[in-house]
């Protein structure tokens, strides 16, 4: 258990550092950045205390905001996906979630992709709506959401495959 807590703290720090050091400066095609720090929320244990989880997600988003000078947009997007995660888990994994036996490294590719896609889409829609904050630019929001989501999903899936835990 102790080991696991260290693992989560390490994951938190590494994801934040990689995000603000490297990925926020990619600007692929001029404006596309993958937001992979939400892997922390994706991989949080299923039976985690919900209040603690909400609070951690808030801190995670706020840290990214602090480095990116973006007010509170990442924090808002993070707590929304953290709050909605049980609903998404239930709809994607069905019964095996009810019995709390889901292991993301063991489920099939299709289910994992569906789970990641749903979370990333919700996160990015909230993120870019709040960033642009102007509904007359709704096409710009849609464009940014779509392409950034694609980019993020691909990078997250690759990271999940590369850093799969072998032991469990």
């Amino acid at each position: 258990m102790n080991n696991n807590i260290l693992l989560y703290i390490g994951r938190f720090l590494i994801l934040v550092l990689v995000q603000v050091f490297v990925l926020n400066h990619i600007n692929f095609l001029g404006y596309l950045n993958p937001y992979i720090y939400i892997i922390f929320i994706l991989l949080a244990p299923i039976n985690i205390n919900k209040s603690l989880f909400l609070f951690l997600s808030f801190i995670l988003g706020l840290t990214i905001d602090l480095f990116g000078d973006s007010g509170g947009i990442h924090a808002t997007a993070c707590i929304c996906i953290a709050y909605l995660r049980p609903v998404i888990l239930r709809s994607v994994f069905g019964l095996s979630y009810e019995f709390q036996t889901v292991k993301l490294s063991k489920v099939g590719f299709g289910q994992r992709l569906a789970y990641v896609t749903l979370i990333v889409l919700i996160h990015h829609i909230i993120l870019f709506s709040l960033e642009i904050f102007n509904f007359s630019h709704i096409l710009l929001i849609a464009k940014k959401t779509l392409f950034s989501s694609l980019f993020s999903i691909i990078v997250i899936m690759v990271v999940l495959v590369l850093f799969r835990r072998k032991d469990s």
């Binding site: 909400l54 609070f55 808030f58 988003g61 706020l62 905001d65 602090l66 480095f67 990116g68 000078d69 973006s70 007010g71 509170g72 947009i73 924090a75 808002t76 707590i79 929304c80 709040l130 904050f133």
Partner: peptide, 23 residues
């Protein structure tokens, strides 16, 4: 938490008020 982060977001959209969350 949603309320807090939305306040921070709205503040960041108005000039000279986004002082709390700053790099």
């Amino acid at each position: 938490l949603l309320f807090l982060s939305l306040i921070l977001t709205i503040q960041s959209h108005s000039y000279h008020k986004s002082k709390f969350i700053s790099s």
